[in-house]
């Protein structure tokens, strides 16, 4: 019996060694280790053995079974490895081929700028307000201290629809409307982005339709230095910490004192170049302390409340920030232009 088992062992090891596929290996497993396999059938003859021999043969049979099992497992692992290698070899792709395209969309550059500015001011506690684009003469001019025949109306040639209605020439009427709505009773802290219109011929720097963002802060004890502080924060966040700001006295009928804000020219670092017209500075916005008459007309007591307002051309800010040299690009929707700024 001993010999029989040893023969089985030798024969099995030899056969396992020669096998090259999983199927044959499974057959071998059944043949040697299965319920009807060789080792089992040898062990069936155990009853004929002497009592003391049985454990010896049993132990031997178990060892051989284990040896064959591990040979098969070893072989199986080897075959699996080979099969996997083969599969992986077959599955090689050219990773340099382009991926399956997805349709990529994106915001308009002006939307991007508006949201950036909105978020900046929301962070400082401002609300975002909107208003109609077809305005009354009252809100567009009169409520902003620009009565009929005021010389400053020359500055704004407007698209009138009737004598009383026009396309708003600035977003300032939203300020007047908001103050009116608050009835002079609570502080106003808002910005208002929006589309505005002026009677200009469209060219690289003029557009009959463009956008503005204005801000208004009315409260007790608002100082001109606060305007300076807020604008400074805005300019640095918007254009970079390394930019300087400069405020110059100016004139707007709805503010007194009035300011214009310049930022230092990035191109030449204030040395003077064609971008800044040799001045070293670039004008970015206008503003000032809200004129007492404007406060009064909106129901705020100018002895109690003071405030500041500022406004800028969104298109201009975008042009400055991203080096766009033709304002018409914002309204032509040239794909070659639009797609440049999706990641802006």
């Amino acid at each position: 019996m001993k010999e029989k088992l040893e023969t089985i062992h030798k024969e099995a090891v030899a056969k396992i060694k020669d096998i090259n596929d999983m199927k044959s290996l499974q057959e071998l497993r059944v043949k040697y280790l299965g319920k009807k396999g060789s080792i089992t059938s040898v062990l069936r003859g155990m009853g004929k053995l002497a009592k003391e021999e049985r454990p010896i043969i049993g132990e031997m049979a178990n060892k051989i079974r284990q040896a064959i099992t591990s040979s098969i497992e070893e072989k199986q692992a080897k075959l699996e490895q080979e099969a996997m290698d083969k599969q992986l070899q077959e599955e090689v792709i050219d990773v340099t081929l382009p991926g399956r395209p997805i349709q990529v969309g994106g915001p308009h550059l002006l939307t991007h700028i508006v949201q950036e500015i909105e978020d900046l001011f929301i962070g400082m506690g401002f609300e975002v307000k909107e208003g109609p684009q077809v305005e009354t003469d009252y809100y567009n001019f009169e409520a902003l201290n620009l009565p009929q025949n005021h010389p400053a109306r020359d500055m704004q040639d407007s698209f009138y629809i009737t004598n009383e209605l026009l396309l708003r020439t600035h977003t300032s009427p939203v300020q007047a409307r908001t103050m009116n709505a608050y009835k002079g009773e609570k502080p106003v802290k808002m910005i208002c982005p929006g589309v505005v219109y002026r009677r200009d011929h469209d060219d690289a720097t003029h557009s009959h339709q463009f956008n503005q963002i204005e801000g208004l802060y009315v409260d007790k004890d608002v100082r001109m230095s606060d305007l300076k502080g807020i604008l400074n924060l805005f300019a640095k966040k918007m254009f970079g910490e390394d930019r300087e700001i400069r405020l110059r006295p100016s004139f707007f009928p709805f503010t007194e004192p009035s300011v214009e804000m310049d930022i230092s020219c990035k191109v030449c670092s204030k040395k003077g170049c064609s971008v800044c017209k040799q001045t070293g500075w670039i004008e970015v916005l206008g503003g000032g302390m809200v004129h007492p008459r404007v406060l009064e007309m909106a129901g705020y007591d100018p002895k109690v409340y003071t405030g500041f307002a500022f406004g800028m051309g969104t298109d201009r800010i975008a042009m400055l920030k991203y080096g766009v040299n033709d304002i018409r690009q914002f309204y032509m929707n040239d794909k070659r232009f639009v797609t440049q700024y999706h990641q802006a």
Binding site: E118, F121, I122, G123, M124, G125, F126, E127, V128, P187, K189, Y217, D219, K220, D221, V222, R223, M224, S225, D226, K228, G229, I230, N232, R246, L247, R248, P249, P257, V259
Partner: peptide, 24 residues
């Protein structure tokens, strides 16, 4: 202010700065 020089005004932040800003 303009003869004094806008440059010479300090940078400050408003004294009452309480309102929370948020989109509607």
């Amino acid at each position: 202010a303009r003869i004094y020089g806008y440059d010479h005004l300090p940078y400050t932040l408003p004294k009452h700065f309480s309102q929370v800003g948020a989109l509607t």
